Computed example of a mutant assay.
Amino acid sequence: MTSPTAASALFADDLALALRIADAADVVAMARVNSADLAIDQKADATFVTDADIATERAIRDILSAERPNDGILGEEFGTEGTGSRQWIIDPIDGTHNFMRGLPMWGILIALAVDGVPQVGVVSQPALGRRWWAATGSGAWTNTPGAESRQIHVSDVSALEKSSISFQSIQQWDEAGELDNLIRLTRAVWRDRGYGDVWPYMQLAEGRLEFVAEFGVAPYDIAAVVPIVAEAGGRMTAFDGEESITKQSSLATNGVLHDTYLTFLHGGSTIAS
């Protein structure tokens, strides 16, 4: 579908592979969109999984096993496989509930982490015909209607009251005990919306939002997002300000407002940068 542009030499081959994997995964997932016989099961955590999730992750793992047999894999549906410093982190369908209902707001997330730090990220939303990708040192990129690559950047908005935010869902914030902080934040910013799932992170990377945060996330939910936001000039941490994908929360911003948001959401306390 697309090819990496100006990719860093260190991760150029990995990014090219991730894009080829996304091409294959798009085909598998799209074949099950709006299928009358879509098989749906409920997992132990009460979330749902479809046959499309299973088939897409299997297709991704098959390619990785052939192309990167010495790398580890962490996926939502089949867990961890292999060891070592290099680990591919995949979410075959981020937004399964949207997929089940025929909504196009779902994505395929593919990341490569080295020593726990995401270095390559691809986010594909084939139902929308959109894709975003980045590798450390390469910049962040997206496709255009003409299928050409376009580099993307976060916004330069530097005032809280002029910022636009996505909070993912009220239920998440309520369950995390942060609903009062969310309400305070919505009163302080220019605009707030709960766009949900991976799409708002990509809108942040394109400069259309200044803040996206959520709770209850696993590494496969956010690993692919990290390089894209970072290479677009933004910043992404856990809710407490730590740079980690394992703390079950995420907070992405345009960078210039990151510490402002952290301070605001923590009652004015000093947050480590």
Rank of each mutant, 00 (worst) to 15 (best):
G82S: 00
P104M: 13
T47N: 13
F239D: 05
E77C: 10
V226P: 06
Q248K: 15
A9W: 09
S164G: 07
E178Q: 15
D23R: 10
Q125R: 12
T96P: 02
P92K: 13
N143R: 04
L112I: 12
R235I: 03
A218E: 04
G177A: 14
V189Y: 10
D71H: 05
S269G: 05
S8N: 08
S244I: 03
A29Q: 03
T80I: 15
E76S: 04
Y220E: 05
P200W: 10
L38Y: 08
L64P: 00
I90G: 04
L64H: 01
D240Q: 08
K43A: 12
N181V: 13
L204F: 05
R235G: 11
A176D: 08
L262I: 03
A29L: 08
R86H: 03
E77N: 03
G107H: 06
P118H: 13
Q125K: 11
D221L: 12
A218Q: 06
E76G: 02
I183T: 15
A111P: 06
A140R: 14
Y220D: 01
D94P: 02
T144K: 08
D174E: 14
P118T: 09
R58T: 15
M105Y: 15
A230G: 00
H258C: 02
R187V: 04
G196S: 10
P104N: 10
D62Q: 12
I40P: 01
V198S: 14
T47R: 13
S138F: 12
V226D: 05
F167T: 11
G75I: 12
N34W: 09
L19A: 04
N181K: 15
R130F: 05
I21R: 11
L209G: 02
V49G: 00
Q203C: 03
P92Y: 12
R208I: 07
R150A: 11
S8H: 11
P227I: 15
Q203V: 01
V226K: 14
R86E: 00
G95C: 12
I108L: 14
D240K: 14
V49N: 01
F215M: 15
V225H: 03
L262V: 03
L38R: 06
G139L: 11
A176K: 12
I152E: 00
G82D: 00
S65Q: 02
T2L: 11
A135Y: 06
I245P: 02
W141D: 07
T246W: 07
V154D: 01
K162L: 14
D13P: 00
V157S: 01
L185D: 09
T263E: 02
D156T: 05
A46N: 14
A252W: 03
D14W: 10
D45R: 14
S35T: 09
D14K: 13
D174A: 15
L112H: 07
A188Y: 05
I271T: 13
S124G: 02
V122N: 03
I170S: 03
Q171S: 09
M202G: 01
P69Q: 01
D13C: 04
A22T: 06
T144N: 09
L128I: 02
I170E: 08
